[in-house]
Design a binder for these strands. Sequence first.
DNA 1: TTTTGTTTTAAACACTTGTTTAATTTTATT
DNA 2: AATAAAATTAAACAAGTGTTTAAAACAAAA
Lengths: 217, 217
Amino acid sequence: MYTPFVMKKITKEKLDASTEEKIKEAAHTVFTRKGYVATKVRDIAAEAGINLALVNYYFRSKEKLFELIMAETIQKVLSEVKIIITDEQTSLIEKTERIADHYITMLLDNPDVPLFIINETFSGSDKFSSLLKNTELFSGSHFARQLAELSTERKINIHPIHILMNLMGLIVFPFLGRKVLLKAAGIQDEEFKALMEERKKLIPVWIKTLVLNNTTN
Amino acid sequence: MYTPFVMKKITKEKLDASTEEKIKEAAHTVFTRKGYVATKVRDIAAEAGINLALVNYYFRSKEKLFELIMAETIQKVLSEVKIIITDEQTSLIEKTERIADHYITMLLDNPDVPLFIINETFSGSDKFSSLLKNTELFSGSHFARQLAELSTERKINIHPIHILMNLMGLIVFPFLGRKVLLKAAGIQDEEFKALMEERKKLIPVWIKTLVLNNTTN
DNA sequence: TTTTGTTTTAAACACTTGTTTAATTTTATT
DNA sequence: AATAAAATTAAACAAGTGTTTAAAACAAAA
């Protein structure tokens, strides 16, 4: 089975990337918008404007294609953040500034990515185990160490994980809950973008005051 | 078609609720855990330990059953909150205290509900329009008015919606991202619960300091 | 006990969906 | 131009899924 793939690989370099790339882009769009189960291979084919069979021809199966998209998405999300949190030169506050800036910029372009990732962590399939290896880089990062230092040096009386949850929650939650928030508050899409731009600068300030105010009592 | 239902309704009072209730409980469990599309009617039947056809017998269709579960879930989430945010007697801070307490208590019992709701807001189907009516109660609530007053009276220089996003994000996000957070921080389920209990008291404090620190500059 | 209404069951139906096949068209090589 | 490889297509397949049916089991009423 799949003899075409053997042939393909031999002359891999000469591949016309356009069809393969069209499928990947379409898959990214539909997967992130609808999730794995709700996405039909026929949806991807339609979105890409190509024949149904070509999806399996290039990527063998829906699941293989999904894993590829997933891996690339995670990679994109984490590569820059890895640089930020492992930087030994920057302060905790500086790091939060960079993280907020980077994430919100990314999320304004890919607002469906957080839900996509969260759903996969809940789906239980092993599809997500590759990410877990990547997140190990957090535990030993300079950022994690700085967070831990708050507990000891500065007599902060809360678990550092609270700070991490707060930072991520303040950044990511508006994108997850935006459908409800926009309806409930009656604001438009453009206004939402403006609010998120504001948060790039607000969140680091909030995190800062939140950390400082917890050092005393 | 569906003549059995006509007969049923006539003697509705004499129904043995156990089967119907078993199905509803099973549906709630599976729907919230896997979402609408990933949930198969056969899953619900298996979870309830009853015959497949009984699901359609009692609820006519998967979609009808889902709408029922959805409506009851939303109802449960909003009914108590409605009381809190429309209370004219309590201060903004008191309201955040009550909201944090109520939501976290509820979420510790139903940790999958937020993802369930968010997914439905993104699914685009009209299934969620009934909720939108309910959220209108926020716009005209005492809580919304108090939030708006911050902009004028106290010269706060940020949009009140930021406060709302922060409050909800601080409460809800840890439950959405817990799979990643637990893995990334290497903490256990019991410890997570303890952390959430802590947040009941921490979040109102954070919101308070965050509001006060934004009144000056 | 017999009858009647209700609940439960196994099986089947119609339709969707991931995947494969076999033929055709396009592209590259000689 | 002729040949071989690669890409594309329409059609079909097999498994899964929501729903329905018709018969059986059960419970209540006579």
